[in-house]
Design a protein around this nucleic acid. Structure first.
Length: 423
RNA sequence: GGAGAGGUGCUAGAGUGGUUGAAUAGGACGGUCUCGAAAACCGUUAUAGGAGCAAUCCUAUCGAGGGUUCGAAUCCCUCCCUCUCCGCCA
């Protein structure tokens, strides 16, 4: 959410970015409502000030056993007017919120202009294990490998829940758990505090991080309890400090946490449906930071490096991409994607998306801090990134570490977490 | 699921429908005192919004939202949360 005052004073810029992000909010309507709102407030305030002072006068007269019926009669009509104005104010503010909630965040000046993912900019690339054995001819894709090794049962997963809900079996389940533990331990060792969060959250939390109201269709909802399954741990972790004031001395605050992630993927049916490429439920370790505004972009860079470090440790080829404004998410000011290389798909697959939301989420979720003693409260900047999501990581791992004999070699750093060194 | 108790400022904790943004205590901060510190004493201790160049003034906020009233922290209703007991299940 952007500040109304800011929108009023920077209409052109807000509209330009909104259009770049393929949205078309009614900024003019918002500004008109805002003018009406301020007129109402002024009128209502004057009446309330009068009501307050006359009420005192009534109290004084009653104490002195004098008649106050004339004042009471007058105040009855004043009270009616106030009520009418307050009702109108509420409806105008609701209209404003309905517009404001659909205005995307501004992008940072360093974000390139572009219409879609084809105009993203590759920042750096890491080659990983060289030469990759699968590139030398005996190449199987991750679905074939998973089935041959018996580590994922897609059919039974579909029976239990539906397609997109994989069932990990035996060493597959162990490898999945090892990956999550390996990543968590790594981040904990690098200054992140682990949290284990609720997977179901209320509506206020979903609004806080920007999933609602715009992306309601993308989420699984438990209507009877007004709860939503989280699409990412970002929601739960960022909302830990909703409506709270953080101490400047504890910033930047670095948290990491595992969660299962649930996505309906409405509208993307038939796209990347093979195997692990796009799932309704998957596992992910998330990194979240709460930072001072002046430090948030440096924190974004280090966040990306923390996520990349996992791939380096596993020697999996990847690249880091800076998203152009047209591909940058609704709430984000700047986003880097980390993509691993799938030799079977001959494609880059996104395993992490690291974003600085500046104060966009903090304003929605009311997360603030006091820069120094006596200073005014300010919104913190929130950042997050996957560190990492497992399904596509598993794709890359299986494909890159398959051996001539058809087995999967377990990268050395994972072996102690798995308890075996091949599948 | 049933019965009860409760939600007040940074914290603890008063509060009679009528100058209660809110007693009191603690904490924090500033000052006096001190070589320094402690103690003692004095003072400060919100957030959001509106008007104004500004000093400043005004409005709202006692879990959330409605209602009653000239006037609500205080009365009524709905919801949320916490705690205790019972039941049920891990």
């Amino acid at each position: 959410m952007l500040d109304t005052k800011f929108i009023r004073e920077n209409t052109e810029r807000v509209l330009r970015v909104a259009h770049a992000k393929h949205t078309n909010p009614d900024i003019q309507g918002l500004i008109q409502c805002d003018e009406r709102r301020r007129a109402i407030i002024q009128q209502a305030q004057d009446l309330k000030a009068r009501r307050n002072s006359v009420s005192e006068e009534i109290a004084r007269r009653k104490k002195a056993k004098q008649d106050a019926s004339d004042l009471i009669t007058e105040m009855k009509t004043v009270a009616d007017t106030i009520k009418r104005l307050d009702d109108e104010l509420r409806s105008v503010e609701e209209q404003m919120e309905q517009i404001a909630l659909f205005i995307p965040n501004l992008t940072h000046e360093s974000v390139p202009h572009g219409s879609d993912a084809s105009q993203n900019v590759e920042i750096r690339r890491y080659d990983g294990i060289q030469p990759c054995e699968c590139e030398r001819g005996f190449r199987k894709d991750h679905v074939t490998l998973a089935k041959e090794r018996g580590i994922v049962d897609f059919e039974r997963g579909a029976k239990i829940a539906g397609s997109g809900f994989p069932l990990y079996v035996g060493k597959g389940a162990q490898l999945e758990r090892a990956l999550l533990n390996f990543m968590l331990e790594y981040h904990i060792a690098h200054g992140y505090t682990e949290v284990f969060v609720p997977f179901l959250v209320n509506e206020a939390s979903m609004r806080g991080t920007g999933q609602l109201p715009k992306f309601a269709e993308d989420m699984y909802a438990c209507q009877a309890d007004a709860l939503y399954l989280i699409p990412t741990a970002e929601v739960s972790i960022t909302n830990i400090y909703r409506d709270e004031i953080l101490h400047a001395s504890e910033l930047p605050k670095k948290l990491c946490g595992y969660s299962a992630c649930f996505r309906r993927e409405a509208g993307s049916y038939g796209k990347d449906t093979r195997g692990f490429l796009r799932l309704h439920q998957f596992n992910k370790v998330e990194l979240v930071k709460f930072a001072k505004p002046q430090e948030s972009y440096a924190e974004l860079e280090s966040l990306v490096h923390d996520a990349e470090a996992i791939l380096k440790a596993l020697q999996i080829p990847y690249r880091v991409v800076l998203l152009c404004d047209g591909d940058t998410g609704f709430s984000s000011a700047k986003t880097y994607d980390i993509e691993v290389w799938s030799p079977a798909e001959q494609k880059w697959l996104e395993v992490s998306s690291c974003s600085n939301f500046e104060d966009f989420q903090a304003r929605r979720a009311q997360i603030r801090y006091r820069p120094e003693h006596g200073a005014k409260l300010e919104f913190v900047h929130t950042l997050n990134g996957s560190g990492l999501a497992t399904p596509r990581l598993m794709v890359a791992l299986l494909e890159h570490y398959q051996t001539e004999s058809g087995k999967i070699h377990i990268p050395e750093p994972l072996q102690s977490y798995c308890g075996f060194n091949s599948i």
